[in-house]
Amino acid sequence: MPRVKRNKFYNKLNTYRKSVQLFSLAFLVAVPILVVNGIYSIIGNLYSITIFGVDIVDPAMALQTTILSRELIEVLIIGIILPVLLALIFGKVFCSWMCPFNTISEYWQKLTAKLFRKRYRKIKLQVKDENPNPVIFWSILISFFVLSIILDFPMITFLSAPGIISSEISHFIMGMGFGLELLIVLMIIFIEGILFKRYWCKFVCPVGGVLSIFRVKRTMHLHYNSDLCSCAARSEPCSYSCPLNLSPKSKNIYPFCFNCGECIRICEKTGSGALSFSFGTNNMSYKKGMKNSHKEEIEFSIKE
């Protein structure tokens, strides 16, 4: 693929992502409105949804139910097939493309950055240069499940921000009013706003956590070609643009990264095109001399 085309592709990808985000927010509003008007072809919320008879279950909720009830329930296993396949092929794209919490949080982050420019910089605790250790991620996720077994309490339900948001929207439209659980979401956003930038999606969220279990070598991932990178070591447009504050050039961006493609778009703008999505397994391009052959492979995978 020629450069201009590549540039366009990633630019478009980002436009698509933003419109899908808004579409899925609208979808969550539309479902209860249809239900109130007697159309039951799509029912449910983001814990579990039935679309024209096809059950889709949030893998985190399915795991929690299986652990707490100590039973394998057929429908849950069937229900997680679609989200798991999506995660296996494209990574945590549910988070970056569909999750209403991420949508709200992304816009909120932009807003606060503009509004409180000075204060924002001062208060915020953030590590710029390094990606966090994945051990933190996995231990938080496992501790949630261990805690819910010990306390015999469905914790994931309370920590699933997309689930809470979607069910609250449906309550409100069906005339049951907002519940206090919306405070959980507001609190998460509040802490994100003043303390830790995007800590929830990065470390804590159990929904994204369970989705990132389903990751293999061939899953779509960010590919960094150091030969093409023309930015100085200090100025990194990619890491500044990352909504999760990761640095795409270094290791360990997974399991944190949710493949939103923001860094790639910025990278294309700088003109170097060192970052791209890839389904491939080999990292040969890091060695010199293999540059061109690998480039073709990336382009091939993008075309696919």
Binding site: V35, I43, G44, Y47, S48, I49, D58, T157, G175
Partner: peptide
């Protein structure tokens, strides 16, 4: 333990 809070029952209930 079993309920996954999907609200489908509440949504399908014709009498609210």
């Amino acid at each position: 333990k079993r309920c996954i809070k999907c609200n489908k029952c509440a949504q399908i209930c014709p009498y609210f």
